[in-house]
């Protein structure tokens, strides 16, 4: 019996180490320790073992059983490891490029717009939107632009035929024409008519001018405007806002200055110049960046605000111009060509 057990163990040791597949293993396991297995057969012979040898043989059988189990466990581990290994491909080369395209990118105009909105939100401005198709009232009349003003000419502004209908752009007067807004100031009017002061908004958006396209002009471009209406708003507050915006966007070395100017919807009105010589491709001391002023009382009266109670300022600028300045881009058309080599530079 003892010899048989030793032989069985030796045979198992030799065989189990060579097993590669799970079915082979299961078969081998059955052959050794299954109900009809060799060890089971030997155990059944226990009855014929003389009584005095029983404890010794019993112990031996148990030991053999334990050793067989260890061998089986080892064989199974080996097979499991081989199975996992089989799931793997060849070793990777970490220096090969991913076949998937690289990171996505936001357009530089989006980046600048969002950065400006972020800066303005910090000082209480919320972002509003309005329709790009507008009417003469919201784009011109309400902004104190006289009926014969050149900006309203069909030469400068895109109009729609009298018969055109826009289901979700409201008209103020039945007979007025639809047009493509020439500035985002129309959003100020819609906001003031809809709400009540105090108002603190920024309206970025697309605007249209009937103009030749070249390195600095584009058939549509983007503006960003701020409007603040409250009691006792002053020119000094306006200057403080612009100083804050441009120092935040372009760095502390940036300076602004106001030059008196004329706009129909503000009084007094100013053009804003920037001094930011640390930016790329800036070779002038002062660069014009936008227009601003104190909301004209006529505009307030037009939207039903008492101009002796309410005061406010407005500021507007071109986003392309700002992006060009910020990144040192010298042709506005690059924004609209979307050459991926261009788009990838700003993320």
């Amino acid at each position: 019996m003892q010899d048989q057990l030793t032989a069985l163990l030796a045979k198992a040791q030799a065989e189990l180490a060579t097993l590669k597949q799970r079915p082979e293993f299961e078969a081998a396991k059955a052959r050794y320790v299954g109900p009809n297995g060799e060890l089971t057969a030997l155990m059944k012979q226990m009855g014929s073992v003389p009584k005095e040898q029983k404890p010794v043989i019993g112990k031996l059988i148990n030991e053999t059983k334990g050793q067989l189990q260890t061998l089986l466990d080892a064989a199974l581990r080996q097979i499991e490891t081989a199975e996992l290994q089989a799931q793997l491909g060849p070793a990777i080369d970490p220096t090969l490029p991913s076949p998937d395209s690289g990171a996505g990118t936001s357009h530089p105009l989006t980046l600048v717009r969002e950065e400006m909105c972020r800066i303005l939100r910090k000082v209480g401005f919320t972002v509003v939107e309005g329709p790009e198709v507008e009417t003469e009232y919201y784009c011109f009349d309400a902004l104190n632009t006289p009926a014969d003003h050149p900006a309203r000419d069909a030469q400068d502004t895109f109009y729609f035929p009298d018969s055109a209908k826009f289901g979700n752009v409201s008209k103020k007067n039945h007979h007025e024409k639809y047009l493509l807004r020439t500035h985002t100031s129309s959003v100020q009017i819609r906001t003031m008519l809809k709400g009540k002061p105090p108002i603190r908004i920024v309206s970025p958006g697309r605007v249209y001018r009937r103009d030749t396209s070249d390195a600095t002009h584009s058939a549509n471009f983007h503006q960003l405007e701020c409007l603040y209406v409250d009691k006792n708003v002053t020119v000094r507050d306006l200057k403080a806002l612009l100083d804050y915006i441009f120092a935040s966007l372009l760095g502390k070395d940036t300076k602004t200055r106001f030059r008196p100017h004329y706009f129909g919807y503000t009084e007094p009105s100013f053009e804003v110049d920037l001094s930011a010589k640390h930016l790329p491709k800036v070779n002038k001391e002062w660069i014009e960046i936008g227009g601003c002023g104190m909301v004209d009382p006529t505009v307030f009266e037009g939207v039903g605000y008492d101009s002796t109670v309410w005061s406010g300022y407005a500021f507007g600028m071109g986003l392309e111009r700002l992006a060009m300045l910020l990144y040192g881009i010298d042709d506005i058309r690059y924004f609209y060509q979307n050459d991926v080599r261009f788009l990838k530079q700003f993320a």
Binding site: G124, T126, V235, D237, A240, D243, Y244, F258, F270
Partner: peptide, 24 residues
């Protein structure tokens, strides 16, 4: 203001209340 000089507008800090609404 024109004759007095717009360059003489004194520097100051933006007076900002909390946001009154969410973005559109």
């Amino acid at each position: 203001l024109r004759v007095y000089g717009t360059e003489r507008i004194p520097v100051s800090v933006v007076q900002a209340p909390g946001l009154v609404g969410d973005d559109d």
